[in-house]
Structure formats: C-alpha cells, structure tokens
Simulated assay, not measured.
Amino acid sequence: MRDVTPALPEGLTTRPLARSDSRAVSDVIAAQELEDIGQVAIEEADIVSDWAKPSHDVTSRSVGVFDGDALVAYAELMGVDRADTAVLPSHRGRGIGTWLAHWLLDLGRSIGSPVVGMPVPQGSPGDRLLEQLGFRVRWTSWVLRLPEGAAIPERALPEGYVVRTAGPEDLRPAHDVLEDAFLEWSVRDREPFEDFLAATSGRPGFEPWNLRVAVDPDGAVVGVSLVLVSDDGATGFVQRLAVRRDQRNRGIAQALLVDSFARAREHGTRTSELSTDSRTGALPMYERVGMVVDHVWVNRAMDLT
C-alpha cells in the first residue's frame, strides 16, 4: 500500500501522544471494544505499563487524532512490527482508520520494519478495513474463558516441585523462561529485562502474588504464570504462561493454571481468562481442561520489504 496517504476530515488535528494521555487512549480503546466484542478488556494499566518500558518512546512512536480537545483515535508502533489502533465508534466511516494505517506503514518504513501488523476482532469493521487495504492475516488469537463455577482439573507436579509466589531472586530466571518459550515461535528481538519489570512489578496495581513460578527440587524456575485481576474484580486473566522446554508434558503448565486461577478466586474473581494464538498450538490443551473460546481476533499485517 504505497499510494498517497489520504487527508484527515476537516477540523481534526493530530499530535504525538504523551504518557499523560493514557486515560484518554484507554477510553477510546474501551469504546471500540464495547462496540466490536460487547465487552471491555483494556485497562489503563495496560497502557501505562507498555509506555513505561524503557525500550519504547511513546512520543516518537504514536499519534493521536483530536476533535477539538477530545481524543477520537490513536495509533502506535511498538518494537519493529507491533501496531495498535483504535477509533471511536462515533467517528468511524470518515477515513480516520485508513489514515492511521498509512501513518503506521510510513513509520514502519522509516525505521526499517519488515512488516507492520495489528490485532483486530475477527469480522469487525477494523478487520474488514484492513482486509480492503491489503493487510493479510498473520495469525489468529483466541480469548478463552473458564465458565463461572468451573475448575480446571488438578494435576500432580513431579516429586519435589512446587508452585509459589515469585520472589525478587526469581525475576530474572522467570524472564528467561518466558522469553525462551515465546521466542520459539515469535519472530522478534528478545525483550529487555527492564521492559519485563515495567510489565510486572512496575505495572499499576501489581501485587507480588500476581507472578507465579514453578520450581524444581533445586529451586530453579521451570515455569511462570502472570495472573492479573480485572479492574472490576470479576476476572482473573493469565497474561503470560510458559514452561521451560525440557520440563514440558509433565503437568507443570496445568498446575500453574490451577494455582493462578485459585489465587485469583481468593482475591474475589468469579471467572478466569487467558489468550493464545495459532502460532503456539496450545488451543486444544486449554479446551481439554474446560476452557471455552469467548472471542476471536486476527493479527493483520502488511509486508514492507
């Protein structure tokens, strides 16, 4: 898509975003999610922790679209290829989404990105727009929910293994387990440890119990789960889950799930969720333990090289 970037509707203005815009951005995303999937998944803490990562410069990697003083749309590019956008439903159909797509591709080209992709609910207006603009589907993601009142079957850990709250000494090993696992199928640079800290202990509202680790008899971290509680207190969400490659197929991932959801219930949640995508091959495992697909997203991307 190298044609001329269309103009924004008359009267709208743009500027780079700043950390002080986190609430306005989360409000725009929430309005779009409510329209597209019937529920709100975003929390301001998601934006704050992303923008606090030392590797990310929000000012040079973002743009906000304003109608007067009100933010009505935004886009940003994190790393080399992860884009996020949102447009207020009341401002759809005016060419703003198309303008944002061109803006992201231009930014990607300027920093040498080989590809720029973004998640959109399958079948949503954003999905249809990106398809029309020539964006291909890179992968499919599923948000799975454990039905209220249901529980994941317990599975015994290997002898001498335990699941517990991560301590300060576990943070670097936990980061290593997560990155080693995710980089088996994700084509990106290794996440800096400081970015990991921003997304965990630096996240607004984080409590030590949110980070769970499975350790072997020698105390080595072999599995990790990051479980968060939604702003309304109703849902426990496993944001990250990984087991060291040489320790898989021993029940450790299932034990981490059981523990994570149980700890979340102790903190008042009624349901539990997680997401996975087609790169991991993990969907059947989660369905086998009783989780059901709640909604489906696709990552649509444009190759720049």
Rank of each mutant, 00 (worst) to 15 (best):
W139C: 09
E35T: 07
D67W: 05
V87L: 06
V48G: 02
V115W: 11
I47V: 15
V115R: 15
E131N: 11
D81E: 13
D50I: 11
D127H: 14
D36F: 04
E43G: 08
D36Q: 10
E76K: 00
T98S: 08
T85V: 12
V87P: 00
V87Y: 01
E44Q: 13
P121Q: 05
S113N: 03
E76D: 09
V143F: 08
A86G: 04
E76T: 05
Q39D: 13
T98A: 05
D84Q: 13
G123N: 12
G108K: 10
G117E: 08
D67F: 06
G93A: 06
G95R: 03
G134R: 06
W103L: 00
G112S: 03
G123P: 08
L71Q: 01
M78T: 13
W99D: 00
E43A: 14
G68I: 06
P114E: 08
S49I: 00
D81G: 14
P54W: 14
P125C: 08
A101V: 04
I47T: 15
S90A: 15
D36E: 15
D127S: 14
P125L: 11
S90D: 14
T140C: 10
V25P: 04
Q122G: 12
G108S: 10
L107N: 05
G108H: 08
L130Q: 11
A31F: 00
G79V: 01
M78E: 14
I96L: 10
G126H: 09
W99C: 01
Q32P: 02
V48C: 08
D127P: 00
V25E: 02
Q122E: 15
A30G: 10
T59W: 07
E33S: 08
P89C: 03
L88K: 10
Q132C: 10
T85E: 02
R138F: 05
S26F: 02
H102W: 14
I42W: 09
M78K: 14
A30E: 04
L107V: 04
W139T: 13
Q132P: 05
G68W: 09
E33Q: 15
W99Q: 00
Q122Y: 13
E76A: 01
V48E: 14
P125T: 13
G126S: 10
K53M: 15
I96N: 05
G68C: 01
R94G: 01
L105W: 02
R138M: 11
A30Q: 01
D57T: 08
D106W: 05
P119T: 11
L88W: 08
L88N: 04
G68Y: 04
I111L: 13
G117P: 06
D127W: 13
G134V: 04
K53Y: 07
D27H: 05
A73S: 12
D57P: 01
V48L: 14
D81C: 07
V87K: 02
D127F: 09
S55P: 07
V120H: 07
D81T: 03
M78G: 12
L104M: 12
L71T: 01
G123H: 09
R94F: 02
E131L: 10
S113L: 03
Q32V: 06
G93Y: 08
G38C: 11
I96S: 11
D69W: 00
G126K: 11
A75Y: 00
R109S: 12
L100P: 03
D50N: 15
L77D: 09
H102I: 07
D127C: 13
V116M: 07
R61Y: 03
